[in-house]
């Protein structure tokens, strides 16, 4: 059994730079971070402070220059591109600001995508898809296409897609940035539910202090370093 204090994310001495032409921008230099299992962390900070870059590094879709990144005991900074793809398929779910659904696929087909990377048969996949869509309250929209759904509904489909392969970690980049207050609250409640009832560890980037209220704690990223602030639950 894992206890809530087991580490989910461990970043040590992380260095990340971007090179644009002759110029090199250093985003992180000596960043450290520890997030235990089943935590729900809001990452805040000014635009351009590296929040998205941090999520990309945690999700293994970008590489660091130095330091170590360990997720649930796996040193992902050591994995090759192919190994990372394989790892992502079962260990992380992503939720983006603009949903990033496949326009030509239905809600159910979008949610099914990650399962195409598993050995599950058609029937097992369908059951999982339906279960995931039920969690986000979209059981009645299986056959709808993204363009037939509201922003909030599309984001719920995206969340279902992120959880369908049952990853322990969810990375959300401004998931409510494009939504109105009420819809944002619905989405945030779903994330909270996933954290509380399903034990998902969630790292959520947000600009919105009200959104951060749904998390267990908030981290402020500024000039490449974290400042922690406890939130009232």
């Amino acid at each position: 059994m894992s206890s809530a204090s087991d580490p989910m994310i461990g970043i040590v001495d992380l260095r990340k730079t971007f090179t644009k032409g002759k110029e090199t921008i250093t985003i992180f230099d000596g960043l450290n971070l520890a997030i235990p299992k089943a935590d729900f962390v809001a990452v805040m900070g000014p635009s351009g402070s590296g929040k998205t870059t941090l999520l990309n590094l945690l999700g293994g879709i970008d590489c660091c220059d130095a330091g170590t990144i360990e997720i649930a005991g796996i040193r992902i900074d050591r994995l090759s591109e192919g190994q990372l793809a394989h790892w992502r398929a079962s260990h992380v779910g992503f939720v983006f600001q603009f949903y990033n659904l496949m326009q030509m696929l239905t809600a159910a087909q979008n949610v099914e995508l990650p399962l195409l990377l598993t050995r599950l048969g058609g029937k097992a996949r369908r059951e999982r898809v339906e279960a995931a869509l039920a969690v986000v309250g979209l059981s009645d929209r299986l056959k709808h296409y993204p363009k037939e759904m509201s922003g909030g509904q599309q984001q719920r489909v995206a969340i279902a897609r992120a959880i369908v392969s049952d990853p322990e970690l969810l990375l959300c980049d401004e998931p409510t940035g494009d939504l109105d207050r009420r819809t944002a609250d619905e989405i945030l409640s779903i994330l909270q539910l996933l954290n509380r009832d399903f034990g998902k560890t969630i790292v959520m980037v947000t600009h919105d202090p009200a959104a951060a209220q749904y998390a267990r704690r908030a981290l402020h990223l500024d000039k490449g370093h974290f400042i922690e602030k406890e939130l009232a639950a």
Binding site: A85, H86, R88, N100, Q103, L116, L117
Partner: peptide, 14 residues
């Protein structure tokens, strides 16, 4: 391009 990026993010190999 974006959809291909999403597929890769989900773990679809190149």
């Amino acid at each position: 391009t974006r959809e291909i990026g999403v597929l890769k993010t989900l773990g679809f190999p190149g």
